[in-house]
Design a protein around this nucleic acid. Structure first.
Lengths: 145, 145
DNA sequence: ATAAATTAAATTGAGTGCAATTTAATTATA
DNA sequence: TATAATTAAATTGCACTCAATTTAATTTAT
């Protein structure tokens, strides 16, 4: 096998590329299930936070999801329009926007609860591989660049 | 620890979420290096294919990168405008668009060759973890949903 | 040979992502 | 206490990403 100083530039020698491709691939596999409840993938993970926390401000949401207000502001307006959350400035500090789940949003949880089980079979990872992957990904996320 | 039937909907119990977050995080870490050569991450992986293959059609490129013409067509027009590739219909089959690297595109490779080494230190994974991650990601990509 | 089916790109439109800037509110400081 | 610095969202603008449709070329089936 011939070597060149350019080997490091080959797609097959990258870790970033399969990570990027895999991420998009998995989101694509969620789509048919998310379509049934009318959410995009990003809206779904926002709702996951809402189902757990009931009420958060945009900053906290951004910290949970690694997203900023440029992404979240229009997305939250859509979720508000669909009736799943409310958006109100905080009384204590009017810079903060409090996002709170509605009854409709709570109801959606009962439809969404099936999704993790429906999606479970869509990769062929062993439980050990799942655990490994989880650990490695969070190790990367924990690294300050 | 209390359990609920909604546990599977918690963000911390998802594999897809850290994958999605990690992918975006890594692309973000490439940005300062890619800025120096004036490419976006997606343009960079397209150029990686071009540096290896010299000439491909859009379909092949899409298969390599898991992207479709909706993403590739405008992106390739930008790379053509920058002078790194040419775009020409195939003589044999005019449905195919042949994308070929230019001399300018080849020159860019010498600037880009440093990037994999500059980026190498940006995660704290052990070599074993890198290999594990690589294997697991390609296992997922190889799964037909 | 011609019509029907298939294929490859391009186009369209909705929805992110994100860097950079702006606006408004709050806090820290001279 | 005015002013400066900081903070939280919103806004702006550019670049994807992808489903669905359209257009044009080629194959297949009649």
């Amino acid at each position: 096998m011939k070597h060149s100083k350019y080997d490091a530039l080959k797609l097959e020698n990258q870790l970033c590329f399969p990570l990027y491709a895999c991420s998009r691939e998995i989101v694509k596999r969620y789509k048919p299930f998310l379509d049934e409840i009318g959410l995009t993938y990003t809206q779904y993970i926002v709702m996951m936070v809402m189902w757990e926390r009931k009420s958060v401000n945009v900053k906290e949401l951004g910290e949970c999801l690694y997203l900023d207000s440029g992404t979240l502001t229009p997305l939250l307006k859509k979720l508000e329009f669909k009736g799943y959350v409310t958006r109100m400035r905080s009384d204590k500090d009017e810079r903060n926007l409090v996002v709170a789940i509605t009854d409709e949003g709570e109801k959606l949880k009962d439809k969404a609860v099936e999704i993790p089980f429906q999606i479970a079979g869509c990769t062929n990872l062993t439980p050990e591989e799942g655990v490994q992957l989880y650990g490695i990904l969070y190790k990367i996320l924990g690294t300050n660049p």
